[in-house]
Each structure stands twice: as C-alpha cells, then as structure tokens.
C-alpha cells in the first residue's frame, strides 16, 4: 500500500498542514502524546519527526488503522465512544483530538476523559460559525467547505459547534483554555472576530 489519501476526517490539506504546524509548536519535545482519532497516523508521524514524541494513536476504522501502521506510528484500534478506561490518570503529557470532536457522539465525555488521561488537551475543530458557513445557512442550505466537505446526509460530523459553543462547554466541564489559535480558510491566523472569520480552531485546554 502506498501513500494513502488523507483520512476523511482530516480533510482539507491546506488547513490541516497549517494546523499541524501550530499544534506541533505546542507540543513539548520528547513528550508522551495520545492522538484520539488518529486517522491514517500522519499527524502523529509528523509529531514523531518534528517533536520526537513518544506517541500512540487511537482509531476505530480498520483501513485507517492499517494506514497508520503503514505510516510507522503506534496505533491502537479502540472505540473512543466507550471512553479511555484502559488509560491511567495523567499518563500522557498531551492528549490530542484533531478534527475528531465534531464526529463524536459522546462529546462531553471524551473531553473529560482527555483531561483525566493527559496533563493537557489540544482540540481542533472546524468552526461552524465561520462566515461562509453562516452565509450558506442564510442562503437556505447546509454549509459545505474545505474543512467540512460533506453533504448533510453523508457526513461523519454530528456535533458541529462554534468557538462560543466550545468555550461554553469547556467552562461547563471545568476546563481552562490556556491557548487558542483560530485560522482562516487559507490557514492564516485570525485576530479580529474569530468566531466569524475563523474556519478552524485550535484550543489548548487544561483541567482547572
């Protein structure tokens, strides 16, 4: 098997690469990292190469597990929806949820679990509040974009949210936002009106 296409959840190559670079810069050198929903393992491989992390990925979908194995990362085939009961408290420096949150059924549970297992969590997700999405809704259709390339009837994304929504959930579960970076559609950082201009959000959160 050659280079497999990027996993469906890690869609949008431009945005994805830019968010990886930010994400990598937030990861301590040689730290222990757990990547929830690691897809084909390319992010984890990137972190191994650039940050020398000791990393493990969790993935449920068989063909992505195979791709992750092929990409030389440690992948564990497990269902995130049932929690991380096999992992001890504080057993990882950083737990990553890269473009997976919106596809999870038990959204709140997984955020709690990542902050139990890790000293901190990094969450990235497409911002539903992005102006182009709002415009499409105003125009009467469900939004499609580089970050959310699916038809409404055929999308793995079941829990889409805006920056405001996510931050509200964080305070609800007692998570502190330590750092936040919001990107526009071209992968450039957005300062003003992030909930409107941001296409993708990257949060670093810690337990209170």
């Amino acid at each position: 098997m050659r280079e497999s296409p990027s996993s469906a959840v890690h869609a949008g190559a431009l945005v994805t690469r830019a968010d990886w670079m930010v994400l990598a810069s937030w990861i301590k050198l040689r730290s222990r990292v757990l990547d929830l929903g690691c897809g084909d393992g390319q992010l984890l491989r990137h972190l191994q190469q650039t940050r020398q992390v000791s990393g493990y990925g969790i993935e449920i979908e068989p063909t992505r597990v195979v791709s992750a194995v092929r990409h030389g990362v440690n992948v564990l085939q497990m269902n995130l929806e049932t929690g991380l009961s096999g992992f001890d408290d504080r057993s990882f420096d950083t737990v990553i949820l890269s473009q997976t949150l919106q596809a999870m059924r038990h959204t709140e549970a997984i955020l709690r679990e990542m902050l139990r297992v890790g000293h901190e969590g990094i969450v990235t997700f497409p911002n539903f509040g992005f102006w182009k999405n709002r415009l499409q809704v105003l125009g009467g259709v469900m939004p499609k974009s580089q970050a959310m390339p699916y038809e409404w009837f055929d999308t793995p994304n079941i829990h889409l949210c805006t920056l405001q929504d996510f931050e509200a959930l964080c305070s609800r579960i007692g998570a502190r936002v330590v750092q936040r970076l919001v990107m526009g559609a071209q992968g450039t950082p957005v300062g003003l009106f992030p909930n409107l201009r941001g296409s993708l959000a990257i949060y670093r959160i810690q337990p209170q």
Partner: peptide
C-alpha cells in the same frame, strides 16, 4: 488489551488491532 495496557505502561512501541 491487558497486554497492550502493560506495554503502554512501559512506554513500549505497540500497535493493536481488534479484528471484526
């Protein structure tokens, strides 16, 4: 998974496939 957990505890490289 008990084996996997023990390997993880030791920071060893492990991949785990649970085949349907």
């Amino acid at each position: 998974r008990e084996i996997v957990k023990a390997l993880l505890d030791n920071g060893l490289a492990v991949s785990y496939a649970e085949i349907d």
